[in-house]
């Protein structure tokens, strides 16, 4: 049995099968907490813990899937180009809002964690928490964080933005649909953007664009902010 579960195909198959079923479930229910990625991760962790299988064994197969994160991040550059091409006029105010929002996300997170005297490894892992998971993972790796902690928190941030973002913004007096979209995409990436799309088509477009711009902003600024602040 030990030799069998060490085979990569076992874990590639299980991951594909669980993900497929999680997508099915999400299509039927459509709740923020049934986001396929969250369900898939929870089911797999539960399965591994239940059968007392360690993560290294799972990653024998898992690494074949995560390998494709490399070229997929490059593919995001293509998506960003297509998205930015959608809006030709008046991009400047939008870019300023996203830039300020994205950088303040990194700075405020570092500030609060330092105030709580949290260990440095957490600061390095969570600094890119607002951007789309693949970029956040790469940023965490390059600043010496733990990519798995990053992935978990980034997904949680997305679900929070999806479930409460709009209520919080309306409570604070924001009425513009485009402003709501921009904020959701900047603070809570793709999972937040899914909610913006439900609000209105326009909010969805701005949210998708904000996700792209903040992806670039965070990828480029985080290493320098961390280096400057933490040394």
């Amino acid at each position: 049995m030990k030799a069998f579960i060490a085979l990569p195909v076992v874990w590639v198959f299980l991951t594909l099968a669980v993900f497929f079923m999680a997508q099915r479930l999400h299509k039927r229910l459509g709740w923020a907490v049934t986001t396929p990625i969250l369900v898939t991760i929870l089911v797999l962790i539960l399965f591994l813990s239940l059968f007392d299988i360690d993560f290294e064994t799972y990653d024998n197969g898992g690494k074949f899937l995560s390998f494709f994160l490399g070229p997929s991040v490059v593919a995001l550059g293509v998506l960003f180009y297509e998205k930015l091409d959608e809006i030709k006029s008046n991009l400047m105010p939008f870019c300023i809002s996203v830039f300020v929002g994205g950088v303040s996300s990194i700075l405020s997170l570092i500030f609060i964690l330092l105030a709580f005297k949290a260990p440095e490894i957490l600061i390095r892992s969570l600094a890119p928490k607002s951007v789309t998971t693949p970029i956040a993972i790469e940023v965490a790796k390059s600043v010496g964080g733990v990519p798995s902690i990053t992935a978990g928190v980034v997904i949680a941030v997305g679900i929070f933005g999806n479930a409460f973002g709009i209520h919080i913004l309306k409570l604070l007096g924001i009425t513009s649909k485009t402003a709501i979209g921009t904020a959701l995409g900047t603070a809570s990436h793709g999972i937040g953007t899914a909610r913006a799309l439900e609000e209105s088509k326009l909010a969805g477009v701005y949210s998708g664009l904000a996700l792209c711009v903040n992806g670039l902003v965070t990828a480029i600024t985080t290493p320098f902010i961390i280096e400057w602040w933490m040394g």
């Binding site: 993900f19 591994l48 993560f55 690494k63 390998f67 992935a151």
Partner: peptide
């Protein structure tokens, strides 16, 4: 894309 970062999420354990 989402499928490719599942292993990182599982690594949270």
């Amino acid at each position: 894309l989402v499928l490719f970062f599942v292993p990182y999420g599982v690594g949270l354990m």
